[in-house]
């Protein structure tokens, strides 16, 4: 019990004194996961809408693949991103393995199918006739897509939450492609793993609390936006 109490006490101290190492780790986490989420939103929403609106042979297989991708194990993503970025790998010439850039790539790969899958479902849930109505109002195809995205904004906010929540709390891929280098590629999750294994529970608990707080804050903001639209 002492261990936990002592840990929490120290963690609290680290937080209120704004420990520079803890702050740096937190900012890097936000930066990497935020960028990865933005990339995944761009690719996921555009592809998701495209698949939702088009009819082609093999569409079912594509949809199944996207849905499977929503549950992609981070370690598998970490493995393949590592292989691709390895010195002799196809993208080895970039020389970005064990950098934040590699972590952004890995996290974007994890988040993109999540965003894509939710977008696909959200657009398909809109009434079929809504598309006709939008076209009948004189919209170009691009205008129609934009209006549909606006109509599906609530589930799309859920996609943002799910994507960001998935990558900020992910550890496997980050440690594999980022290397947990102090002051460079160390993020909340990888630092928590390391400090725990060293027995530095106080720091680990502090990092854990920050992670929880971050997750809560972001979800709270997005939920606020969602609820505002409910009558």
């Amino acid at each position: 019990m002492d261990l936990i109490l002592e840990g929490i006490k120290k963690a609290f101290w680290l937080l209120v004194t704004l420990d520079p190492e803890v702050l740096r780790i937190t900012f890097l986490s936000l930066q990497i996961s935020g960028t990865a989420t933005l990339i995944s939103l761009f690719i996921g929403i555009s592809t998701g809408v495209m698949v939702a609106l088009s009819r082609f042979t093999g569409r079912r297989i594509v949809v199944s693949l996207i849905n499977t991708g929503m549950g992609l194990p981070p370690v598998v993503v970490g493995l393949f991103v590592t292989i691709f970025l390895w010195r002799n790998g196809p993208l080895g010439f970039l020389g970005i393995l064990y950098t934040p850039a590699a972590m952004i790539i890995a996290q974007a790969v994890i988040a993109t199918p999540i965003v894509m899958g939710i977008t696909l479902a959200a657009i398909q849930q809109l009434p079929q006739k809504l598309r006709l109505q939008i076209l009948a109002l004189g919209a170009t195809r691009l205008q129609m897509v934009w209006i549909l995205i606006k109509e599906a904004k609530l589930p799309l906010l859920a996609a943002v939450m799910a994507g960001f929540g998935g990558v900020i709390s992910e550890v496997g891929a980050s440690i594999m492609v980022g290397g947990n280098i102090k002051g460079y590629s160390r993020v909340l999750t990888t630092a928590t793993v390391m400090e725990t294994s060293r027995g530095n529970f106080d720091i680990a608990i502090a990092l854990g609390i920050i992670l929880l707080l971050l997750a809560f804050c972001i979800n709270y903001i997005i939920t606020q936006i969602q609820q505002r639209h409910r009558a």
Binding site: L132, A136, L137, G138, A139, T140
Partner: peptide, 9 residues
């Protein structure tokens, strides 16, 4: 859509 813009449904 130029034609559709002359109509309303």
């Amino acid at each position: 859509f130029e034609y559709r813009r002359k109509l309303a449904m």
